[in-house]
Design a binder for these strands. Sequence first.
DNA 1: AATGCAAATGCAAATCTTTTGCAAATGGAG
DNA 2: CTCCATTTGCAAAAGATTTGCATTTGCATT
Lengths: 139, 139
Amino acid sequence: MDAEKLLKAQQLKVTPQRKAILTVLQNSDAVLSAQDIFAEVIKILPGINFSTVYRNLDVLLAKGILCRITPDSGGVLYELRMKEGHHHHVICKRCGTSMPLEYCPMEDIETKLAERGFTPTEHRFEIYGYCQKCSEGGE
Amino acid sequence: MDAEKLLKAQQLKVTPQRKAILTVLQNSDAVLSAQDIFAEVIKILPGINFSTVYRNLDVLLAKGILCRITPDSGGVLYELRMKEGHHHHVICKRCGTSMPLEYCPMEDIETKLAERGFTPTEHRFEIYGYCQKCSEGGE
DNA sequence: AATGCAAATGCAAATCTTTTGCAAATGGAG
DNA sequence: CTCCATTTGCAAAAGATTTGCATTTGCATT
């Protein structure tokens, strides 16, 4: 995946900072916090600022280049969007690896909500646990 | 619902601070942030401290007296647990009212996860939108 | 290749939320 | 009533994220 193409496709300027952020996310199959990302990006681009990372995460998220995940344990995690369109995630609590999920529970429940007069606009479905690799090694 | 009974049932000491926190949550059918709760509790119990509220929210959560909800918009919200056992939530983005949901998507997906070797330990399913009352008044 | 400007960045400070250490206070079992 | 583990208040620290502003930079257009 080409960082420049990704950015241009969204009418975003191609800056070294953005390329570094995308590189970090590409090289990780785990979901990362803003701080994690900053810690990695600064290795590539010493001198980059926190605020630049935060601002760009917001921009990339708004443009749909990233997904945001918010575990129960708190915090906000990001990952490169690997799948087009709406989807949910399965996340390993040990290694942080995230997999897209080809299933959305909303279909099953839409009529039930309609009966209650509730109009859904967003929803979230996230599954945490241990991936195959991390299960094998014991808990 | 009796705050004292709730606390005693969980081997927690009955303190004015805890009773005040529970009272606030009982009188609200919306989900509240720690700050919201503090702002209300201090009206009942002037002099109560932030840290007391935070600590007690953690305790009450651990004991299963509260539910924690983390909207995409960020932040952490709490509500009195209205339903025994595992369940999910439907939350109105305007008035914050929360309703328990008698449906869990995990059943539908467990085998699919097993095929991938993933062992789920926790999951979250939250639906945001507008409740009947708030839909009527227009967006 | 040079120009112009909106967009992006760095920096520093501010804000907001949550946590922690510790001494004093207190609930409740015996 | 006494005692002790639990809980609280306080103050400070820690952590995460945001903001204002001057400067720089990408890039579309000369």
